[in-house]
């Protein structure tokens, strides 16, 4: 399994990660080794096998659709690095 420098940079962009130049090659190598290792799954016959996302059989419980106490605006904003007028403030996106 080949992982290229461009693959690493593409994933970093998608994940909003910045990599220092010195980090890129070790990351590329680690990803390549781990994904090559993971190709062991190709040896399994998975035809007709259902995927499992939740291993315990259960139905999703429902709750009453009622208004209950939750975080106040002040609590939600208490950890904000920057907030103004009751909102999280961030740098310009566009």
């Amino acid at each position: 399994m080949d992982v290229t420098r461009e693959d690493v940079l593409r994933c970093a962009r998608l994940a909003d990660l910045r990599l220092e130049e010195a980090e890129i090659e070790p990351m590329r190598r680690a990803m390549e080794e781990l994904l090559t290792h993971a190709q062991s799954l190709d040896a399994l016959d998975l035809a007709g096998v259902e995927p499992t996302t939740h291993a315990l059989p259960m139905t999703l419980p429902r709750r009453e659709d009622a208004v209950v106490a939750s975080f106040t605006q002040a609590q939600a904003l208490a950890n904000a690095p920057d907030a103004a007028e009751g909102l999280f403030r961030v740098p310009k996106a566009l």
């Binding site: 693959d7 781990l34 993971a38 499992t52």
Partner: peptide, 25 residues
């Protein structure tokens, strides 16, 4: 990075979906 790669276009079936099926086995 690995997770982003496994879920990205073209690799989802090759890695993530395969792992979900292996989980069943």
């Amino acid at each position: 990075l690995l997770g982003t790669f496994c879920l990205s276009k073209g690799y989802y079936e090759a890695f993530y979906l395969k792992a979900l099926k292996a989980r069943t086995l």
